[in-house]
Design a protein around this nucleic acid. Structure first.
Length: 265
DNA sequence: AGCCTTTGACCAGCG
DNA sequence: TCGCTGGTCAAAGGC
């Protein structure tokens, strides 16, 4: 049972922490706007804070939403695009009891587009699912040869909405590889170098992919059909434009969101 | 050269 | 046991 009293306690702590971090971040940005030209790479300072705040809130959301719904909520913010749902039961009516067991060490998340979770994945298969007539991509960690058993399955969940994907993660990463922030590419809010590589929370934190990517690098959850691929790229470029954040207004939204949740608990 | 995706074949779980 | 279908393998070709 995920919604135990202890889980609620954990969720409260996480939301509280996220709220503190976002307030801190807001102060940082206000300081920046007062000092005018004296902008000392604020994004570099803000990024770890924002990441930690989102991580805390996402973790809390995961707890609060588990057992309630397995359908992801599309956020208006591009950052909080996906919502984690617990993998308590993979058998839906469409599964018709024919799914192989994914094991306990798996979880799913819904997203409106492929995102960068900070790990490198290699596609090893693609299957058209008969029941839904949709494709499912099979990915495993690039560092499988180093013993990392992490996998993920990316499936388009709807014919009518080509931008909605269900991503299933199987096993956590045991490899030490993680993306690092490159000085030459400042616009990479999806970098995760400061996060514990193997933590479950890390796996649940999904920021939008904002860096330009070539088709071959679309291993974050592409589907095989050209149509979907094209759609995905179209969507990705839209998000890329959106990633020129109005950080301040985004923060106000996030803090508003955090305090609302905080009060409701 | 090395790593990637694609894709058909094969394996295995389930009714 | 058989057939269906999801999951994985591996060869081929591309970048």
């Amino acid at each position: 049972m995920r919604n135990s009293y202890l889980d609620q306690e954990a969720a409260i702590r996480k939301v509280g922490r996220g709220y503190e971090i976002l307030k801190e971040l807001q102060s940082l940005l206000q300081l920046k706007s007062r000092k005018g030209e004296e902008v000392v790479n604020t994004q570099e300072l803000a990024e770890p804070l924002l990441r930690e705040g989102l991580q805390a809130l996402n973790y809390a959301l995961g707890i609060m939403r588990s057992g309630v719904s397995t359908v992801g909520v599309k956020s208006q913010n591009t950052v909080l695009e996906s919502v984690v749902s617990s993998d308590t039961n993979h058998r839906t009516e469409n599964d018709r009891g024919k799914r192989k067991r994914l094991g306990e060490n798996s979880w799913t998340t819904d997203t409106t587009m492929p995102y960068d979770d900070g790990h490198q994945w290699r596609k090893y298969g693609d299957k058209k699912i008969i029941a839904t007539n949709l494709s499912r991509g099979y990915f495993r960690c690039t560092y499988k040869d180093q013993g990392c058993e992490a996998k993920k399955l990316v499936q388009q969940t709807s014919n009518s909405d080509p931008h909605l994907f269900k991503v299933t993660y199987i096993n956590t990463h045991t490899c030490n590889f993680h993306k690092t922030i490159s000085p030459s590419s400042p616009l990479q809010p999806s970098s995760f170098s400061l996060i514990e590589p193997d933590s479950g929370v890390n796996q649940m934190l999904h920021l939008q992919e904002c860096k330009p990517s070539r088709p071959q690098l679309l291993n974050q959850g592409s589907c095989s059909s050209d149509a979907i691929l094209t759609d995905t790229f179209t969507n990705a470029s839209v998000v890329e434009r959106n990633c020129e954040w109005d950080l301040d207004s985004l923060l106000r939204d996030l803090i508003g969101f955090a305090s609302e949740d905080f009060l409701q608990i």
